[in-house]
Design a protein around this nucleic acid. Structure first.
Lengths: 208, 208
DNA sequence: TTAAGAATACCCTGAAACGGGTATTTTTTT
DNA sequence: AAAAAAATACCCGTTTCAGGGTATTCTTAA
């Protein structure tokens, strides 16, 4: 029996995972949490074999929570969820001791595969993740810096809730310029629509 | 001399506070942090008299950080910042031991007043805060539930980055209905523009 | 049993942003 | 010196949303 705890505020995801696991007899969900503190309590009490956790959570985030769990209960396997393929998030989670990494927009069946795989001591990383992390050859990932300086600056302002015309005023640009950058950011990051752009910009501030 | 530490990712705010405090000889900034963990290190090392802190921070959030600081160094005075007047945030911060609460859109001079006031052992709460918190008569705040069920549901979906037409599809509503709710949410919460709505919806998920 | 609040849905205007281009001028880098 | 990358700026048509209404149905609480 694989015992699983979930920390996740995205209700649709919890519902989906529940639905999926209902028919899996060797997997049982022993607890759900909405923030890192709650998750720690559940893990200490129930000692699940696998923890599925959102990286961004109130009180204590996924990276900090992973560090704590790995220190106290090193046999616990951790699978991280995140919305975007953010370099730092992946790196920090792996450093903290996570055994798996899933993107929230991947097919739900991946969750099952990942749980089974990490429960057996293996790792599972979403195929959509930038593979350069996993090539152990320490060739410095120089390739990076996907976004240019202006783009990062504008991304930051977007994350502060500024509109394109406000950003244009701040930067002494024309609105067209800002919108071009905006479009390039969306293209480069593979986002879809302003919703995701804003979400990305806001989450980005939080370093993961 | 009042020693101050700041934890805040909003650069413009740090800049503003810095500029403001430069001319205040009895106030000195002894440290700045970008997340809760960093802030704790600074506080333990420098032991500032006053801490200005953002509620939403990576690793450890403002509420958790306040709890920890108040346990370890109870003489430290804490002033919380937040973007919105969110009931839970105010209540939780006060319970955690914060001596002051500022909204980020208040005039900068308030920061000065607040620092001076809490350094002297008093409290300082932004005038824009809902005063019902501070009326100690425990008349149950029945007035609550500002948003209706549909509105909260839609707010949540907005926080997940969904557009109105997506939300309409999910809820089997017409787009008009969703937009009406959206407008009512904005009106009830006193937000301005879609940027704030989205920011609010995203932050709201994190309970403060 | 009314009156209030909630949920539903539509109208209109204008601003903002998407997403598809193209194009020019600077900077870098090779 | 030439090529590549970044920054700048505009065009177009379309969608989304704000902010201002109005209006009907349904539920709930005086």
């Amino acid at each position: 029996m694989i015992t699983v705890a979930i920390a996740e505020d995205h209700q649709s995801l919890i519902d989906g995972v529940n639905l999926l696991l209902k028919y899996e007899e060797e997997i049982s969900i022993v607890g759900m949490a909405n923030d890192g503190e709650e998750l720690l309590k559940i893990v200490r009490l129930k000692r699940p074999k696998v923890v599925l956790m959102d990286i961004r959570m109130p009180k204590i985030d996924g990276i900090a929570a992973t560090n704590i769990i790995k220190k106290e209960l090193p046999h616990t396997k951790i699978i991280a969820f995140s919305m975007f393929d953010q370099e730092d998030a992946v790196r920090q989670m792996i450093e903290a001791g996570a055994s798996g990494y899933l993107l929230k927009n991947s097919p739900l069946e991946e969750v099952l595969t990942a749980i089974r795989q990490v429960a057996q001591g293996e790792t599972y990383y979403d195929a959509a993740l930038d593979p350069s992390f996993f090539s152990k050859d320490a060739k410095q990932q120089v390739k990076k810096q996907l976004l240019s300086k202006s783009e990062r600056e504008i991304l930051k302002l977007i994350g502060q809730g500024k509109t394109s015309s406000e950003i244009a005023a701040i930067r002494f640009n024309s609105v067209s310029t800002v919108e071009t950058h905006r479009k390039n950011i969306i293209r480069k990051l593979g986002l879809q629509g302003k919703g995701e752009l804003l979400r990305y910009a806001i989450e980005k501030k939080y370093d993961f």
